[in-house]
Simulated assay, not measured.
Amino acid sequence: MYLRPANTAAHCALWALIRDGLRNRDLPAPDALDEDIDYQASWAHPDLVLGQICNLPYRAQFRDRVTLVAAMDYDLPGCAPGYYNSVFIVNRDSHLSDLRHLRGRRMAASALLSQSGYGAAQQWGADQGFVFASPLITGSHAASIKAVATGAADFASIDAQTWWMAQQDDPLTGQVRVIGTTPASPCMTLITRKEQNPAPYLAAVTDAIAALPETHRQMLGLRGVVALPPAAYDIALPPDP
């Protein structure tokens, strides 16, 4: 989910370690990551070895169709291990400075089935007693940042890990500013196909992260993985816009 040109080598190195760990545990694993398959198709694939899923599509569509392995831990500020949140961004020149000012404003959302780009913001709004209506669907966090930077939307909710990466290579982040954060929820979560024992997958991933060279670990911002209880995913689905 976080593959970018700058960190491709680090992701590939991590996969090579996971792959070898799975094979050492008599589990099949492909030589390389599949960078072309549609993510929805990958999660539903009957031969899925390992995938990374956002908790909203997991809760909404895949909970009974896959095996939960563990949540990624990127050591994000204000988040417990295995959790993440999103940052609310507005245009650098916007007068908006308080999250309460977002009520009635135009939201840019990466996708309706994105927890970080849509669900977390609606969760925050629900806690305040309202919903964000008629969001501008952009297709990606990068496009949402652009929408706020160019004035096409008043604000957006950006995955905190994506925001950390974007600040390193997306100049448009200089055109926006953060005014707050959403509630935290389970971070990007590793899954495999249905009716598998998650233990050897978790062990292979844990060992791989421990063996990953420090330069790659820093590039990914990855601290580890956490096997969260299934109840951690018992979060109400966001409302339709």
Rank of each mutant, 00 (worst) to 15 (best):
E35H: 14
D36E: 15
I37N: 11
I37M: 14
D38H: 06
Q40V: 11
S42I: 09
S42D: 09
S42C: 14
H45C: 07
L50V: 15
G51K: 00
C54H: 02
N55M: 04
N55I: 03
Y58T: 06
R59S: 14
R59W: 00
R63A: 01
R63Q: 09
R65S: 15
V66L: 15
T67K: 05
T67S: 02
A70C: 07
A70R: 00
D73G: 10
D75T: 08
L76P: 06
G78P: 04
P81V: 02
Y83I: 01
S86Q: 07
V87H: 11
I89K: 01
I89Y: 02
N91C: 01
D93A: 15
S94A: 04
D98G: 12
R100E: 14
R100A: 15
R100V: 08
G104H: 06
M107Q: 01
A108L: 06
A108V: 03
A109S: 09
A111G: 14
L113F: 02
S114R: 11
Q115V: 10
G117C: 06
G119Q: 01
A120W: 03
Q122F: 00
Q123I: 04
Q123C: 10
W124F: 13
G125V: 07
A126W: 06
A126F: 13
D127R: 14
D127E: 15
G129T: 04
V131Y: 01
V131Q: 10
S134Q: 13
S134F: 11
S134L: 04
L136M: 14
